[in-house]
């Protein structure tokens, strides 16, 4: 009997690996091999065609005060600020929005859909819309203002520079991200569906008010989803690149995020100016940062409650 079982086990394993063949080839060719090469390039003088020596110069360059340290760290810092601010704002506000739109009032489905609709505008297009709507003119030429500054002007308010000042560009980027709250909204509404209604019934029988129910039932029972989203939006946010299409590196490099710097270092200049090896070294630092953050988050996830516990 045991012999027969193990025989089917082996047969099943063979079948399983046939199914897995595409992903094994894919990971070997498009992930494992490039990772290995990237690590190798980062320790070499690779210039896009060949490498002659293996050395630590790229990392030395990245950590030397008169080398790349200051620009690279400033990019890393801007990326951190972006990730922390946009993740917090998005999670908190989309959660509040979902709590509000969870109510069953007439026409709620249409209201929810309308809130989601800006997410259907492709990122590149919405970037162009915001760049146009938030336009500013430092000389105060009203006809060069975007719609928001024109409205401010009509109301007698001072013009706001939005993307055209290093101080306000990051804020403007996060602000324009608020039109994308609908994505989080749909997700939270889905998460609320998994909370059993009986919990609320017994809570209200016990006299718990609305906010008490939110803090004692809804939030604890959606922490697993919250955690998953913190992880994915952190990993995704650290790799932000889409802003490059419409805002470039931002006014005075205010939106010069890490991946944009890596791209520019490797491909941005002309042949000879590009430094592929240095770009690889930068990407490894980013990889380590992401790995470190993920590890910290998994080590400190005691607050996450899983429903099957």
């Amino acid at each position: 009997m045991i012999k027969r079982l193990s025989k089917t086990y082996i047969k099943d394993s063979v079948s399983a690996y046939v199914f897995l063949l595409p992903v094994i080839i894919g990971i070997a060719l498009f992930t494992a091999y490039p990772i290995f090469m990237s690590l190798f390039y980062s320790f070499s003088d690779f210039n896009g065609s060949y490498a002659t020596t293996i050395h630590l110069d790229n990392y030395k360059e990245l950590f030397s005060l008169d080398g790349e340290l200051i620009p690279f760290m400033s990019s890393l810092g801007k990326t951190f600020i972006y990730v922390i601010c946009s993740t917090t704002a998005n999670l908190v506000l989309s959660y509040l929005l979902a709590l509000f739109l969870r109510k069953n009032i007439k026409g709620i489905r249409i209201i929810r859909l309308l809130c989601y609709m800006p997410c259907l505008i492709p990122g590149l297009a919405s970037g162009l819309i915001w760049r146009d709507a938030f336009k500013y003119n430092a000389m105060g030429l009203v006809q060069n203002y975007g719609i928001f500054n024109t409205w401010f002007h009509k109301l007698g308010l001072p013009a706001f520079p939005f993307f055209e000042s290093a101080q306000t560009a990051m804020f403007s980027l996060i602000l324009s991200g608020m039109w994308g709250l609908g994505g989080g909204l749909i997700m939270w509404l889905a998460a609320f569906e998994n909370v059993s209604p009986e919990l609320y019934e017994s809570a209200s029988l016990d006299g718990a008010g609305y906010w008490r129910q939110v803090f004692s039932i809804t939030i604890p029972l959606t922490t697993n989803m919250l955690f998953y989203n913190l992880i994915t939006s952190m990993i995704g946010g650290l790799q932000v690149f889409g802003t490059f299409a419409t805002y470039g590196v931002g006014t005075d490099e205010s939106l010069y995020f890490v991946v944009i710097r890596i791209y520019n270092t490797a491909f941005g200049g002309n042949l000879g100016v590009n430094n592929e090896a240095l770009a690889c070294a930068m990407s490894w630092i980013l990889f380590l940062v992401i790995g470190l953050f993920t590890a910290i988050m998994f080590k400190t996830n005691k607050w996450v409650k899983y429903s099957d516990e």
Binding site: V23, F30, S38, C280, W284
Partner: peptide
Amino acid sequence: IIMATVMLPDAVLMVPKYIL
């Protein structure tokens, strides 16, 4: 192994994939 690739930033693969 498959799930670990989620953590890997595309930027790490950018240059070697281009060369490949």
